[in-house]
Every structure is written in C-alpha cells, then in structure tokens.
C-alpha cells in the first residue's frame, strides 16, 4: 500500500490543534469566562502556546523511541499552532489588556522583564513560522532549514522564563514543564553527541 499523502495526515492534526482556540472563542462569546474575560483569554492563550511548545519539542524524542513517522509529520503543524496561540496571546495583551493604547504598551514593554522575555520568544519563533511551508526547506536547503529551526530551543527557554516571572506562587505545573523541557533538551544534546561519533 502506498503511503498516505502528507496532507491526509496533516489535516486531522490541524483540526485537533484548532480545538482549544475554537473552544475558547466559543466560551468567550457565550460569556462563560467570568466577570473579567480578557484576563482569562490572556492566561489561557499563553498556556495553550506553552502546551503546544512542549508537545512539539517532545515529538522528536517520541519519533526516535517509536519510529512512527506520524510524530515527525505532526511536528510542523503543531509548531505553527504554538506560534498562532503565542501571537494571539500577544495580541490580547496589546488590544485588551493594554486597551490598544500603543503608548501604554511601549512603556510597559520598556519597564517589565516578563514582557521583554515574552516578546523575544515570539520574535524568535517568527522565522520558524514563516519557513513552515514545504517549499521553505527546499528553497533554502534542508541543512540550513534545520539549523534555523534550532531557534526553537532559545525560544522555549525565553517562554519558560516569561511564565516563571509572571507566576507569583510556585506552580507545580510550571516546574513539571521546566523539568520536561530540560529533559528533552538533554536528550537532544545526547542525540547530537551520538551522531558526531
């Protein structure tokens, strides 16, 4: 049997990735996000982005352990969705939290470390999102494309630091996330070290 075309495998991944966003939009329109919905939108889109980030990072290891191609196929759509949720998070901060007032947003970005960390993570993810079409690795060469996409690691570190700065109380979930990310990075380093020998 010939392997299924790529789009047939990607379509369900795209559909599933949209579910949290559609659910959130629906909750918002239904007035189910409490008395200050802007804040819930802000916090949940940030969490969605972190969730997609850790899953995207984990897929490489999952592929290595199981050999299933699906994990590699899923990596790019999930990465793009991670960027989409992060972008929504930043847009909600600007348009709802800061009331769309550019002067206030700039002043806050100048003064607050967590805003700088978050924006830096977003900026690092931008070239990754822009080169996520099939044509990109072909056009720039697969080696260069792979090197460019190593930017996901510093982006992940910045996003994690951002989350740590904004949480006032020690969050067990965040600690688990940090440990998982460190573990995945260690696995990645080990992979490179093994490939060199």
């Amino acid at each position: 049997m010939a392997p299924a075309p790529r789009w047939r495998m990607c379509a369900p991944i795209w559909a599933i990735s949209a579910v949290p966003g559609i659910w959130l939009l629906w909750q918002w329109r239904a007035g189910a996000l409490g008395v200050v919905p802007d804040e819930v939108l802000l916090h949940l889109t940030g969490r969605f982005a972190l969730g997609f980030l850790i899953v995207t990072l984990g897929l490489g290891l999952a592929h290595f352990l199981t050999g299933w191609r699906l994990f590699v196929t899923a990596r790019r759509p999930l990465g793009v969705w991670c960027f989409a949720y992060a972008l929504a998070h930043a847009a909600i901060w600007l348009m709802l939290d800061q009331g769309g007032i550019i002067e206030f947003a700039l002043a806050e970005a100048r003064a607050m470390v967590h805003v700088q960390l978050g924006l830096a993570a977003l900026v690092l993810m931008l070239p990754l999102a822009l080169t996520s079409l099939d044509a990109a690795p072909r056009a720039m060469g697969f080696g260069a494309w792979k090197r460019l996409h190593l930017l996901v690691w510093p982006a992940a570190a910045l996003a994690l630091a951002h989350a740590f700065v904004v949480s006032r109380f020690a969050s067990p979930l965040l600690s688990v996330l940090a440990l998982a990310m460190a573990g995945l990075f260690a696995a990645r380093l080990w992979g490179w070290w093994r490939a060199r020998r």
């Binding site: 008395v35 709802l96 009331g99 206030f104 002043a107 806050e108 967590h114 700065v165 006032r168």
Partner: peptide
C-alpha cells in the same frame, strides 16, 4: 517600579479601559 506589575497605568475593570 514593582518587579511584577507596571504601576504607571491601571485597568478599570468595569469598562475594560486602561
């Protein structure tokens, strides 16, 4: 300055404005 929140502006919760 406060390390966690920017104190120059505030959100009026009932009208959503800053």
């Amino acid at each position: 300055r406060h390390p966690r929140w920017h104190q120059a502006t505030e959100r009026r919760l009932h009208d959503g404005g800053r």
